[in-house]
């Protein structure tokens, strides 16, 4: 299966007179992509541009020739995003409804959606969650729910925006294993290089620009050096 082609064309984004992203340009074909950088480097903003959630001031993002910002109907089946905080992502009161939602959005009827929801829950051995209150899940369980909600829409690319924040070590491990097993292209945003050591391509974002692009061996050691010597709180 060919990897989707992600085309970031000279993307810039400013808020007022603050420049957040400056001329980000990259053609990506890899299956495992990592984006590192300090807080405030623009990683999250880039993630949102990649998913078409915010409009770049100039430039555009295409995945397999689909304009991700404009063509929302096709975009939501191309790329999904797992946010840092599942509480900002979960919209419905019960697990079943939350997964159904995305399926309805891509055109399934209610019974079809319910069927696929059951399949997804069964795949992760959580079929008994279907009528549970989303509010009653633990943080790790909520992240898994968010992941299932995205996977149900069968995107080709999934953006993971610092998905391990606030999770304990076993939960990170388990979720990390789940991520690695996914056939989709993953774009993993993190400020912890350990989680992307085995990835195919790393982008290092600094102050809104691409500082380095390359394999983990090429980028991460230099990144770690810079982090150990950087002064100043962000």
């Amino acid at each position: 299966m060919k990897n989707p082609h992600i085309s970031i064309n000279q993307v810039s984004l400013s808020l007022g007179d603050r420049s957040i992203l400056c001329d980000i340009d990259a053609q990506l074909n890899d299956r495992r992509i990592g984006i590192v950088g300090r807080n405030g480097s623009g990683k999250s903003t880039l993630a949102r541009c990649l998913c078409g959630l915010i409009k770049p001031t100039s430039g555009m993002v295409q995945i397999d020739d689909i304009d991700i910002y404009k063509d929302r109907k096709r975009a939501i089946q191309k790329i999904g995003i797992l946010f840092q905080n599942p509480d900002h992502q979960i919209i419905y009161p019960t697990v079943g409804e939350e997964i159904d939602f995305g399926l309805r959005q891509i055109g399934h009827t209610a019974p079809q959606a319910r069927d696929k929801t059951r399949q997804m829950l069964a795949h992760f051995d959580t079929l008994d969650w279907i009528d549970r209150q989303t509010a009653s899940l633990s943080q790790g369980q909520k992240q898994l729910l968010c992941l299932m909600s995205i996977l149900a829409m069968e995107p080709d690319v999934i953006v993971l925006d610092e998905p391990f924040s606030g999770l304990d070590i076993p939960t990170r491990r388990i979720l990390g294993d789940v991520f690695q097993s996914l056939p989709q292209t993953l774009i993993h945003i993190t400020h912890d290089p350990a989680v992307i050591e085995t990835y195919d391509r790393i982008l290092w974002l600094d102050a809104g620009q691409i500082h380095r692009v390359g394999t983990p061996e090429q980028v991460l050691p230099e990144f770690m050096d810079a982090m150990m010597t950087a002064s100043g709180l962000t």
């Binding site: 078409g52 939501i76 999904g80 995003i81 919209i91 419905y92």
Partner: peptide
Amino acid sequence: EQLKMAHRARSHRSGRWAIIFP
């Protein structure tokens, strides 16, 4: 704002009512 974006990430429709609950 974040919930609005989370909705937009999975739907091409407006999420303005869906976000009141969360």
